[in-house]
Design a protein around this nucleic acid. Structure first.
Lengths: 340, 340
DNA sequence: TCACTTTGCTTAAACGTTTAATCGAAATAA
DNA sequence: TTATTTCGATTAAACGTTTAAGCAAAGTGA
């Protein structure tokens, strides 16, 4: 039982395949009378015709596919974002292809190549470290893309970011205003710009309030050994004379790992140690007390990303756009100073 | 700057396009001498030739695309599973297309149609309620698929399930053995077979131990109003004379919502009320005490699903397979009887 | 009436592959 | 030498569309 093609419809309607194509695509320069239109549509209906997208794509050079490259689709941050992007993409007639890079350049490049080979109309990308050449190649190939979550200073590309520096400084100042003197920052060992900005925001927050920064006030964590590094780091730092009275985790995964450890240590939050975290995840909801966290505007990030990409796909020359969205600080109990 | 095609390679290598195709696909009936092979490969390399998958698909009727239909990619259960499936699919040379149905038949059917229109080689499907006709249609179209997580008794299809009934009965009996007398089951208001089996396992667990089941011992929740129904349900049931001393949540979302509520009510777990949950999610890790939960073999579900599908795609006549995998009961503190 | 435009529709090339069929030259066999 | 086989490669059709170009018939204006 073969698929029914435009040819079969043409035969049944008693017209040429060109006419069928024109009718079915509404490419009617007012040269096709209603009668023919009806004939064709009826035939298509009766044969239950479904257009062959592959043939269509071969001819039109459009696939109506958008590729999404995230670090890990199993990470709630990215899966929530992916869901938003999926909906918006479908809305605009695209199908979404998703790939996880694991923060690994080789995998990243393989994904990009795969999407390029599949001739995705455009890409939404959370770039990894050292992906500059790969992105440059993409630009050379004239495949439209927009960067999300992260951005690469060396690359002039459309992007959607959040105010990483400012919101981090805000978190820091919030903790300072609450009266915490010795805040520990837990961050990734990374060169990713958006994460460096979070650290910089922290540093500038301290500076602004004339607080000195000592060396072990920033705990750097290897992304591949989060639990190990955080457990060890917290163990040692909590035993120093300069024991921190607050911790600021700069990602959801760091926060989850850190909170587990603090709980295991039997520390009361915020009485023994205050906590602020980045991102929002279901996990925070089960923490015994409401957490203070930075809420990213995921809905905006996702929908704007798709819309920007859509525009780029359809009009070759769009001016470069670097959108900066604002994250919100949600203040819970975890960052409240204990009453003396 | 046009894409380089097989034609360009042929020209550069000084051979016909057929030869190029044969060489590049290793379709060599030992009729092509090494010299030509080298020539072609060199030319392809130098021109940086990338095959056009669309043209390839048009000709071969294979897309090397697998479609995955889940209820919601933002649900950790599905995003974890999706990640596993993505990796295994890539391993076998497929690209993964993901769609979320929101447990809605119309969206479900739209997704299936979209994947069919894109001529996915096969589908991995978590079917929704009332999707029978849609799945039958898929069978008629001879598109290979395997069902995961759920299954539809009316449809004879390949599937991968877990032992929902038995593991639920095991959870129930575990609670009974711990000494809990009045266990509340929190379940979805649904006809989905795998969820009914969880309830049935609970009922049979009680029966086996000669415990009677009274009406308000099962709290049915509308999936679209989880928080509302659970909050109200727990409020009322906790105020009855037959106050439950343990709760068994039959999904991760139900558990997260319920645990939030129990915490808000200031109840101590397990001293005031014991808890067991289904599925595994990051959120459980931040709950103050280790939870008792049912751990599904996600890695096996995902990899076996892809492998089964792969086999079905490549050999038209594979016997129907209904794999049943075993979930594990992880016993934490949340289901421990308080010492009297 | 004739020239020209409009209308309605068709023809045919093209998109980039795969692959069966074919073909000439060289090698082997008779 | 001639017939046959093998080797190495090519030709051309096909996959299912889109779309520029073309064409016959009808309509219009002078």
């Amino acid at each position: 039982m073969k698929r029914v093609s435009i040819k079969d419809v043409a035969l049944k309607a008693g017209v040429s395949i060109a006419s069928v194509s024109y009718v079915l695509n509404n490419k009617i320069n007012s040269r096709i009378p209603q009668e023919t239109i009806d004939k064709v549509k009826l035939a298509a209906e009766e044969l239950n015709y479904r257009p062959n997208n592959i043939a269509k794509s071969l001819k039109t050079q459009r696939t109506h596919i958008i590729g999404l490259v995230v670090a890990d689709i199993a990470n709630p941050y990215f899966s929530q974002l992916a869901r938003i992007i999926e909906d918006e993409a479908n809305q605009l007639g695209y199908t979404l292809l998703i790939g996880s890079s694991d923060e690994n350049v080789e995998k990243f490049e393989a994904l990009i190549n795969m999407f390029a080979d599949r001739q995705a109309d455009g890409l939404i990308i959370a770039p990894v470290e050292n992906s500059e050449k790969c992105l440059l190649k993409l630009q050379k190939q004239k495949i439209p893309f927009v960067l999300i979550d992260r951005y690469i200073p060396e690359i002039e590309a459309d992007s959607i970011q959040i105010n990483n520096h400012d919101i981090s400084q805000k978190v820091t100042e919030h903790l300072i205003k609450e009266g915490f003197k010795n805040i520990l920052l837990v961050a990734y060992k990374t060169e990713l710009q958006h994460l460096l900005e979070r650290t910089q925001g922290f540093v500038n927050g301290l500076k602004k309030h004339q607080l000195q920064i000592n060396d072990n006030q920033i705990l750097l964590v290897d992304k591949d050994y989060i639990d190990r590094d955080i457990y060890k780091g917290l163990d040692t730092t909590l035993n120093t004379s300069q024991r921190p009275d607050a911790v600021f985790f700069t990602s959801n995964k760091l926060a989850v790992s850190g909170l587990k450890k603090l709980t295991q240590l039997g520390l009361n939050i915020p009485n023994d140690i205050a906590v602020a975290a980045f991102d929002e995840t279901e996990a925070y909801e089960l923490f015994p007390i409401p957490l203070t966290f930075v809420k990213q505007p995921l809905l905006n990030i996702g929908t704007i990303a798709v819309q920007m990409l859509h525009k780029k796909i359809n009009t070759k020359t769009t001016p470069l756009q670097n959108v900066i969205l604002h994250a919100e600080l949600h203040i819970g109990i975890s960052s409240k100073k204990r009453l003396p």
